[in-house]
């Protein structure tokens, strides 16, 4: 679905902020033989994969298998020891920090530990990327009213408009996760990285979070990488879509083609493939993550 098809009023974002989608031919994310080690520990061990605009990757793996490092190296928050990473066709590896800012401005990130600024209220947290990233992109500084408007929209998107002037510490874990999502998507990025969005949440809240991620993905055709421990999350990503007219999540065969699973073990990607391939895998480690209901 293209952004133009969004029915009036249901779009989470005004037309003016539809992201610049790169040409179909350049992969959104590309890893080539990436290695990262901390002393003896291989956090990433010859990792290669690539994904195209609008596609979804679900990354599964045990604790410490390198999932977070995969996301952090993708945006240059951690530099790999060797290999190449490209974002939107541009080289990340070897760039100076100052030159990475414009690339990162096109990516939204939900951090595993939240990463919400606890000295700022929710509204300021969500406004942060709007106020700080425009300078890098050399676009015009958004007016105060515009920022307010977009912060409200982003918070309405995650159904937390009433928390505008609370501090993160005053919210529940699930609410903080949703604020994190609002902050990640407020700039309408072409790529969003979610690090364990459902970890530590009850099943109902977890499904609400996945529904939000689907909504963001399907309303704006955002490329999505989601790290998770729950097979169920990947199953939802691969088989459901957000229906803008009903505002509900519904089964959709079309998601299956663009959703692929990666399973990580001790820094290596030991499996990459579609959901049926994942379910058919005979590797016992992979099977552990392919069981419905596995945690």
């Amino acid at each position: 679905m293209t952004p133009n098809e969004l029915p009036a009023g249901s779009a989470a974002f005004p037309a003016a902020v539809i992201p610049r989608l790169p040409a179909e031919s350049t992969p959104t994310v590309q890893f080539q033989d990436v290695c990262l080690s901390f002393g003896e520990v291989h956090a990433l061990d010859h990792v290669s994969f690539s994904m195209n605009p609008g596609e979804t990757r679900v990354v599964l793996g045990a604790a410490g298998s390198g999932k977070t490092m995969l996301l952090k190296t993708a945006v240059g928050l951690v530099m790999p020891n060797s290999g190449h990473i490209r974002l939107f066709g541009e080289e990340v590896t070897g760039r100076k920090e100052a030159q990475l800012f414009d690339l990162r401005a096109r990516v939204g990130i939900l951090f595993q530990e939240g990463g919400l600024f606890d000295s700022l209220i929710i509204a300021e947290n969500v406004a942060y990327p709007l106020l700080n990233q425009h300078a890098i992109e050399q676009s015009h500084a958004p007016s105060e009213a515009e920022v307010k408007q977009r912060v409200r929209e982003a918070l309405r998107f995650v159904e937390l408009e009433h928390t505008l002037d609370k501090f993160p510490s005053e919210l529940s874990g699930g609410m903080r996760r949703r604020v994190g999502i609002a902050r990640a998507v407020v700039t309408a990025p072409a790529l969003v990285l979610y690090d364990s969005p459902t970890a530590g949440l009850d099943p109902i809240t977890a499904n609400t979070i996945i529904a939000l991620i689907l909504k963001e993905r399907d309303l704006r055709n955002t490329a999505t990488i989601m790290v998770t421990h729950r097979y169920q999350d990947g199953h939802l990503m691969a088989n459901f879509r957000y229906n803008p007219s009903s505002g509900e999540i519904e089964p959709a065969a079309s998601s299956q083609k663009t959703t692929r699973f990666l399973v990580m073990r001790e820094g290596r990607v030991i499996f990459e493939g579609s959901q049926p391939e994942l379910l058919a895998s005979t590797d016992p480690y992979v099977q552990k993550f392919a069981r419905p209901g596995s945690a």
Binding site: K72, L77, A98, V107, G115, L116
Partner: peptide, 15 residues
């Protein structure tokens, strides 16, 4: 640092 606020800062365009 441990709540990834420093990473978030870098990700959101602040040194």
């Amino acid at each position: 640092r441990v709540t990834e606020q420093i990473d978030a800062m870098r990700a959101l365009g602040t040194d």
